[in-house]
């Protein structure tokens, strides 16, 4: 197990972001090598949001995620080898091969649901908040979802329940579209935050590409929720990664090169703009090097450590067998 990054530790947040990025890059390679792995919804470009929010949580907090779940599951400390194995449908996968890439589940890392039904996790997270409140727990419930999820009616109903019953729920909305527009959402509301705000839910909007801004917003949100003030809607604005909806596994922005953080002149290609302006990982590496928090060498060393870890994880997954077809009927009932 990799420990979740300690709160406030910016180097740990960067480390977590590198891990999330390199994990997804390996998933792309896996999908190229094993065509059956099917459609991937990668978390690339969302790392600043993911790592920074996770840095503000405790191990007891309960998490609910979506089709775009890999980053969170890894950031919360799930074993990357078992996560790769799950994505490959292998026996040693986190879900024993039952879930696949859209449904990674690790209860020990606090995950209750990874639903690929748009809106599915939002309602369940409100339920977990209700459960935690009735149990008198100090933990909170988090639901991560995209802007498009607000298209679904269940979001209105779930936000309303959370507000009425003052439930300890963090609604984390990763907005990777221009406010409510295609390709992922179609909302008449001019700003997403208008929706929770109409239901008296506090909304915080931050730049989701800026890990420091997200950590600050998440800190405020989590403190409010844990303090008993009811739910918070945290919206992080992102610029959609050009590969976020691909049917074939491709690296549209290339394999990440962290030295581009300080060698900006070398950024090139069709999607140079995304890398230069919108890649939160590159931006954070640059911030931490520029303000003297980390040396360039240390950043590159972290990257190498992550790559080594993931190479071993991939080996583990490749060596894992498929589940025995005779086990088909296992685990239908508890």
């Amino acid at each position: 197990m990799i420990a979740p990054p300690a709160a406030q530790d910016r180097a740990a947040i960067l480390h977590c972001m590198i891990l999330m990025r390199r994990f997804e890059e390996e998933v792309l390679r896996i999908a190229q090598d094993h065509p059956y792995v099917g459609r991937q919804h990668l978390h690339i470009g969302h790392e600043a949001t993911g790592a920074a929010v996770v840095s503000q949580l405790t191990p007891d907090d309960l998490f609910h995620t979506t089709h775009r779940n890999h980053g969170y599951v890894i950031a919360r400390g799930a074993d990357p080898g078992r996560a790769f194995a799950e994505i490959m449908g292998r026996k040693d996968g986190l879900n024993g091969g039952r879930g696949g890439p859209w449904h990674l589940c690790d209860r020990s890392a606090g995950f209750l649901s990874t639903s690929a039904m748009v809106g599915g996790s939002v309602g369940l997270a409100v339920g977990a908040g209700f459960g935690l409140k009735t149990q008198g727990s100090n933990a909170i419930s988090i639901t991560h979802f995209g802007d498009g999820t607000l298209d679904e009616g269940i979001c209105f109903e779930a936000l309303n329940l959370a507000s009425i019953f003052s439930l300890p729920v963090l609604f984390l909305c990763e907005n990777n579209a221009k406010e409510g527009q295609r390709p992922s959402s179609m909302l008449a509301a001019k700003a997403l935050r208008d929706l929770p705000q109409a239901l008296q839910i506090r909304a915080i909007v931050v730049d989701g590409r800026d890990a420091d801004a997200v950590a600050e917003g998440a800190k405020e949100a989590v403190a409010r929720i844990r303090g008993g003030a009811g739910p918070v809607f945290l919206q992080t604005n992102l610029e959609r990664w050009p590969g976020s909806h691909q049917t074939k596994p491709e690296f549209p922005t290339g394999v990440t090169d962290l030295s581009l953080a300080w060698e900006e002149d070398r950024i090139e290609g069709k999607h140079a703009d995304w890398v230069r302006e919108h890649d939160g990982l590159r931006a954070y590496a640059k911030t931490l090097v520029d303000d003297g928090s980390l040396s360039r060498e240390r950043v590159l060393e972290m990257d190498r450590e992550v790559l080594e870890l993931l190479a071993k994880a991939r080996e583990f997954a490749e060596a894992s067998p498929y589940p025995d077809p005779d086990s088909l009927m296992a685990d239908v009932f508890a």
Binding site: Y36, E86, G89, R90, G93, N95, G97, R98, G99, G100, P101, W102, H103, Y322, P323, P325, S327, L328, M329, V332
Partner: peptide, 10 residues
Amino acid sequence: PVPVPFSPPL
């Protein structure tokens, strides 16, 4: 009667 498993052989 089992939820559809992801794993190809299942």
